[in-house]
């Protein structure tokens, strides 16, 4: 899932500037399950904004709404009639939700209340770790299900570097060495010889190096252009 973290209140107050009427808009999908921008967090932030703005002498009117998924037109379209009431929308969705709001409702400025951090998983309650960089050319099939692109600090493709010590990364002892993990998995499955095959430099054109990416599925489109 997409993992995010709420921006500090100071930063959010600065972003909102002189806005008098604000709609805090949450998202019921990824940022709800990582406790950053769901209905509950919307309520807490809206309350904090009301109190903070009152204390600073320019009370804001802050309303709350949470949609199931802020990155799809179907879910955000019902917001349209009420948006003209607000000076600004503060989105607690990921960066995709914020952009979806700005794209769909260009007359209203939607600002981000979160920092969208990474694609990851909850390792345990309250701990999230990065697992995918959406590089566009998955190599998990070669690396026994552990991604060296997302989990090796140097994104190495052919084994660990000299900074791998006692199974951890030299960058930070909290980071397990991805290549150590890959090696252990290879041993577990008795397939270490598969790691002898040298991987050529990665084709980053399928990642961000090729510019913003797009997928078009003609079989799913409702209209076709000849």
């Amino acid at each position: 899932m997409i993992v995010g973290e709420q921006k500090p209140l100071e930063e959010i107050m600065k972003l909102l500037g002189d806005a008098q009427k604000v709609l805090v808009a949450g998202c019921g999908t990824c940022v709800t399950v990582c406790f950053a921008g769901g209905e509950k967090e919307v309520g807490i932030l809206a309350s904090a904004l009301r109190m903070r703005s009152k204390l600073e002498g320019h009370p804001m009117e802050v309303d709350e709404v949470t949609v199931q998924r802020q990155c799809e037109w179907e879910y955000i379209d019902p917001l349209k009639p009420r948006l003209k009431e607000y000076d600004v929308v503060l989105s607690l969705a990921c960066g995709i939700g914020v952009q979806a709001m700005n794209e769909r409702f260009p007359d209203v400025l939607t600002l981000p209340g979160l920092n969208t951090t990474f694609l990851g998983l909850p390792k345990e309650q309250g701990v999230w770790e990065e697992r995918c960089q959406a590089c566009g050319d998955c190599i998990l099939g070669l690396t026994f299900g552990i991604c060296p692109i997302a989990r090796c600090s140097k994104q190495l493709l052919n084994g660990p570097c000299g900074g791998s010590q006692n199974g951890v990364c030299e960058v930070n002892p909290d980071i397990p060495c991805a290549w150590q993990l890959i090696w252990e998995r290879a041993v577990q499955f008795g397939q270490v010889e598969r790691l002898l095959e040298i991987q050529p430099p990665k084709d980053w054109s399928k990642s961000r190096d090729g510019g913003p990416r797009k997928i078009v599925r003609e079989d799913l489109r409702l209209t076709h252009t000849e």
């Binding site: 509950k40 309520g43 807490i44 309350s47 904090a48 009301r50 109190m51």
Partner: peptide, 11 residues
Amino acid sequence: VEVVEMLHAFE
């Protein structure tokens, strides 16, 4: 008791 209920009380 949720955090938001405590905040509402302060509000």
